[in-house]
Amino acid sequence: MRYRRITPYLFIGPMIVGLLVFRLIPIVASLAASFTRWNVFTAPTWVGLANYRAMLGSPDFWQILRNTGVFALLYVPGTMGLGLALALLVNRELRGVTALRGVFFMPYITSVVAVAIVWRWIFATQYGVLNYLLTRVFGMAQGPSWLGDAHYALLALAIVYVWQSSGFQMLLFLAGLQNLDLSLEEAARCDGATRWQVFRHITLPLLSPMTFFILIVSLINSSKTFQVTYALTGGGPQNASTTLAYAIYQNAFVFFRMGYASALAYALLVVVGAITLANFGLRRRWVYHDEPRAS
């Protein structure tokens, strides 16, 4: 077969079409939609900035934005800390360590329906495992209503999301750990460094490019919470566990306020984008690169 100029484009064509149809065009279209009032089944009407004004003037929006922030503060350190701990645990030459890695990764690929059923049992106010432990073992008079009380619902969801996704972060950390240059650790140990000192001053800095990548991924994931919320709290009680992603779904597919939902989506983009950019700015303060930098 002769190689023509068009050949490479033919190969990447289907991919490009898919990307355009399912990602890029909808992204632009939803920006346009955010300036309209659109119930999906009739033609949209142009309303200018009305959706954004309504959003900024709505106390619900600010509560949901705060929920999204609080959730990220619980989720990101939680899933990264647990992911790193698990990675350190399984990054050894132990018998059965492969099986252990599989077990830790399991929640990530388990059906959300099953996850929801099990965590409902754990979180149930009266007959739940968690409150049973709190009252019987730790002697609390009455365990909280994890899913039904506005003070705990978001925390409960964060616990489930951390549990669910840490296996994935573990895998990434593990990949990072196994790529480290062991000679540096060995040299440090020869010089009499303790295990903590090796970890703190050698392993962590060497791992920092991977940590940075995981931080960005976790931040973005923290803004995409939907399935567990849907299955466990439905965003309640009274919006207490509604995050932006969940509010977008509610507005788009329950209320059919596609214009308003699009405006919320762009608010989410601005928030996540700003935080990600800030992180890239802060990067040079703590991320080390082993390759010498061109200066």
Binding site: G234, G235, G236, P237, Q238, N239, A240, Y249, F255
Partner: peptide
């Protein structure tokens, strides 16, 4: 999916 909001949420 919005079962926790509106009049439901207030009555809860």
């Amino acid at each position: 999916a919005a079962g926790g909001g509106g009049m439901n949420g207030e009555l809860d």
